[in-house]
Structures are given as structure tokens and as C-alpha cells.
Amino acid sequence: MPIAPITGMLRKRLWLDLSVGLGLGVTAAYGFWYGIHLKSLQRQEEYYLRLERSRVQEAA
């Protein structure tokens, strides 16, 4: 019995895999951005704000 030509196997999954892979990647990247990067920036800003307030208080 002849074997049917095997074509398009990779292509069948490629778009699905690319979409899922990049989708998960972008989700993880935004998780890092909002969960770690922006939080650490906020922590730093709050520290400098506290510092500035105490400076103003000392000067007053």
C-alpha cells in the first residue's frame, strides 16, 4: 500500500505554535514589566520622595 505524501505537517502547527509561544512570551514579559520592573521603580521613587520630605522637614 503506497504511503500517502506527507506534506504540510510543520505548517499545520506552525501558526498555532507561534501564536501560543509569542502569546505566552508577551504575557510573561508584561508580568515581569508590571510585577517587577515598575514595582522596583515605584519603590525607588517612594524612597526618594521620603528622603525629600525629611529634607524639607529638617530645613523647616
Partner: peptide
């Protein structure tokens, strides 16, 4: 640190994307 984190954002997208496709190919093919 800002620049590092901006580049790290792209790094995560690329790593997850590449490893997902690699894993999928290893599993199905």
C-alpha cells in the same frame, strides 16, 4: 537598570517563544 529591563522584556518574549516552538517540534516530530 531601565535599559536592562527593557531589553529583558524582549528577551522573555524571544525565550518563551523559541522554547515553546522547540518543545512542540520535539514532541510532535
Amino acid at each position: 537598570v531601565d535599559l536592562h529591563n527593557i531589553i529583558f522584556f524582549y528577551l522573555i518574549v524571544i525565550c518563551v517563544g523559541v522554547f515553546w516552538v522547540l518543545g512542540s517540534i520535539m514532541y510532535y516530530f
